[in-house]
Amino acid sequence: MATIARLTTTAALDLGKLEYRFDQRGGPTVVMFHGGHMHAGLALGEETFVDAGYSVLVPSRPGYGRTPLSTGTTTSGFADVVRSLCDHLGITRVAAVVGISAGGRTAMATAARHPDFVERVILQSAVGPLPWPDTRTRLAARLAFGPATERLTWSAVRAIMRTAPDVGLRMLFGDLTALPARQVMTALSAEERKTLIELFSRMRSGRGFRNDLAAGREGVDDVTQPTLVIASRNDGSVPFAHAERLASTIQHASLIESNADSHFIWLGHDWPSISGKICDFLAA
Rank of each mutant, 00 (worst) to 15 (best):
M1Y: 13
A2I: 12
A2K: 14
R6S: 13
T10F: 05
A12Y: 08
D14G: 11
L15S: 15
P28Y: 11
T29C: 14
V30C: 09
V31C: 09
M32S: 11
F33W: 10
H34F: 07
H37N: 11
A43E: 15
E46V: 13
E46I: 07
E46L: 11
T48D: 13
V58H: 05
S60E: 06
R61E: 05
G63W: 07
G65Q: 13
R66G: 01
R66Q: 15
T67Q: 04
P68Q: 13
P68A: 11
T74N: 04
A79P: 03
L89P: 05
G90R: 10
V94C: 13
V94L: 14
A96D: 09
S101T: 06
A102G: 13
G104S: 11
G104R: 10
A107N: 02
M108D: 04
M108W: 03
A109Q: 14
A112N: 05
A112R: 06
H114F: 10
H114N: 12
H114M: 11
P115A: 12
F117T: 05
V121F: 05
I122E: 00
S125W: 01
V127D: 04
G128W: 05
P129S: 08
L130S: 06
L130R: 14
P131Y: 11
P131N: 04
P131G: 03
P131M: 06
T135G: 01
A140V: 04
A141L: 08
A141Y: 12
R142S: 07
A144W: 02
T149P: 00
T149S: 13
T149K: 02
A156H: 00
V157L: 01
A159S: 12
M161G: 06
M161F: 15
M161S: 08
R162M: 11
A164V: 03
A164P: 00
P165R: 09
V167Y: 12
V167C: 05
R170A: 14
R170H: 07
M171V: 09
F173Q: 06
D175A: 15
D175Y: 08
T177H: 08
P180S: 10
P180Q: 12
Q183A: 15
T186W: 08
L188K: 03
L188G: 03
L188A: 01
A190D: 15
E191L: 06
E192G: 09
L196A: 03
E198M: 08
F200H: 12
R202S: 09
R204T: 15
R204V: 00
R204G: 06
G206R: 02
R210W: 02
N211I: 07
D212K: 03
A214Q: 11
G219W: 02
G219Y: 00
P226I: 07
T227L: 01
V229G: 01
A231W: 03
N234L: 02
N234T: 08
A241Y: 05
A241M: 03
A243K: 08
E244F: 01
A247I: 10
H252E: 13
I256Y: 07
I256T: 01
I256E: 06
N259G: 12
N259Q: 14
A260F: 13
I265E: 01
H269K: 15
D270F: 10
S273K: 11
G276D: 10
G276M: 06
C279E: 14
C279R: 15
D280F: 04
L282H: 09
